[in-house]
Write a protein that binds this DNA or RNA. Sequence first.
DNA 1: ACCCCAGGTGACAACGTTGTCCAGCGGCTA
DNA 2: TAGCCGCTGGACAACGTTGTCACCTGGGGT
Lengths: 346, 346
Amino acid sequence: MTDTARGSSRRYGTRPTMKDVAARAGVGLKTVSRVVNGEPGVTPDTERRVQEAITALGFRRNDSARILRKGRTASIGLVLEDLADPFYGPLSRAVEEVARHHGALLINGSSAEDPAREQELVLALCARRVDGLVVIPAGDDHRYLAPEIAAGVATVFVDRPAGRIEADTVLSDSFGGSRDAVAHLLAHGHRRIGFIGDQPRIHTAKERLRGYRTAMAAAGLPVDDAWVSLGTTEPERVHTAARAMLDAPEPVTALFAGNNRVTVTLVRVLRQCTAPVALVGFDDFELADLVSPAVTVVAQDAARMGRTAAGLLFRRLEGADEPPRREEIPTRLIARGSGEIRPAHD
Amino acid sequence: MTDTARGSSRRYGTRPTMKDVAARAGVGLKTVSRVVNGEPGVTPDTERRVQEAITALGFRRNDSARILRKGRTASIGLVLEDLADPFYGPLSRAVEEVARHHGALLINGSSAEDPAREQELVLALCARRVDGLVVIPAGDDHRYLAPEIAAGVATVFVDRPAGRIEADTVLSDSFGGSRDAVAHLLAHGHRRIGFIGDQPRIHTAKERLRGYRTAMAAAGLPVDDAWVSLGTTEPERVHTAARAMLDAPEPVTALFAGNNRVTVTLVRVLRQCTAPVALVGFDDFELADLVSPAVTVVAQDAARMGRTAAGLLFRRLEGADEPPRREEIPTRLIARGSGEIRPAHD
DNA sequence: ACCCCAGGTGACAACGTTGTCCAGCGGCTA
DNA sequence: TAGCCGCTGGACAACGTTGTCACCTGGGGT
């Protein structure tokens, strides 16, 4: 009895088209198109008849056809590493906000830090003819994107630079932020400082390591190989690395964590420690002020990165024909006490 | 000189089509299609020629056309409240995982808890002809979706039920979980327990309140109106509400937080308190074990909810013709001490 | 009375792909 | 040598929409 959706001549799963609407309203196809798109040149009376037919049939314009015809999809793709990572939440939210403001939808996927998957995802998005792409790259060779960019897909890389290709890029100041973080620890008297970071093939991990080394060198301090550990951010790995540094004959008195997840794991590790160990983390996290001791961090502004990236993207889409830009978002040291607590007595 | 992308006869921004590839390879259109889709019936030699033309031109299949022709988009839509909310990270990640497993892309958007925006988003997704929808509803009337569902868009509601429509639904056991949480507090001697929750029009907020009231009633305890506060989850609102309960002549000795964000705010509020106040939160959060005192929570399994929802969705897409299902995901009380600490001396 | 103009309307092609169907061609058997 | 079969390849229509252009109708100016 509920045959709103299955009019006499249409099968289940088949949707009404403009043709059906036109037939029912007794007008031409193009007139329906005009009404649907709010184009001028339709009598109020005709418009009403068409509207009635539309509601009666439950018609909804098929955007695939529209896209095919018009060439623009009003959607942008976002490829990041892991939707569940708290760093990417505000970032994707910001991108979405800007996209929405421009009437575009967001399609996204996680690369899980796998370059092959990144490429697969990006190309799938290109096949959908997204108007633009925001990519947090997992790989380091993006030449596969060259034809797409040449074809007009606006592309912005975020958090890490593109590999072997020129493109707009939005980074946070990993080097400077890390240098500041380590300088903060040095200023509080620490001399043996460990660095636990992400996998060395990741650009930010390298930059943060460089910041660490630079700060140490600037203070005229040597860096023991045993004080540096790069690798996955899995808790076990981080735990093992930290223990090694803490249980050494000359243990570190402070740790600098290369990202979010490392920091959290280190908070857990240090909580088991009897000896006081200072901790500074790269990237802020919720409740950093509430754990004890509160964790000093170098905060990055993920939302601003997302906004900036999306901004660049839409500027391109609106025809800006400038050379690729590279924006660097500054970081901010938020001292919360974990650096100061019980300055080293070395 | 870099004319890879702008062959002699093509303008900038125009992409090569199968026709171009066919011309260049000296074969027919359909042969290109066969190669692109890996269909059988093409000589290795022909295939090689086509592949060469494809790479030379930088051809990429236009999925809009494909979708138009085939009727299936291999993409599903996800509408949630806020991408940046930590509860939705694992959920959307799980949905994406399942989608990926089925070769589908994920398009998503945030409703910002606004029913109008939810509808706008959902209909935009339907216009794109997503194969299915996972919706965390903001509104309470989803009749607008009836034609879409009738037309074959598989739809699953998560976290909150659909309004005035029959559809698959995945909920967590808000009622039971809340009852357990409050029972936990009661078992530790609390008698004056406050509840601070989300806006009353949100289903989960109502259910959690019901759980609270039921537990109190089961213990034969009256509930003072001043002990219940529903509203937005903004820190100021929650802060004010909590203060009112704590500064009353007969202050509450324990608080039950209706969600994630409320819990976090309450941790901050209680930290300022001199008198000990117990806290139990609905929904777990990272570091709940590290703040002091560690926060007891009723954990929901967001990832499992996402997986279940996506599972239902693809079952429908694969043709399951069962009546709408309603899955309830159990919650789990994780006692971490914040309930026990200094049992009430009332 | 005629012409012209403007505004409303519709016929038709095109977007790029896939499904259907038929043609050509080589090798095999009778 | 004729006839048949199987396999490869291509012509063509269709998907649902929008842009182009032409048609029609009625009203106003000459």
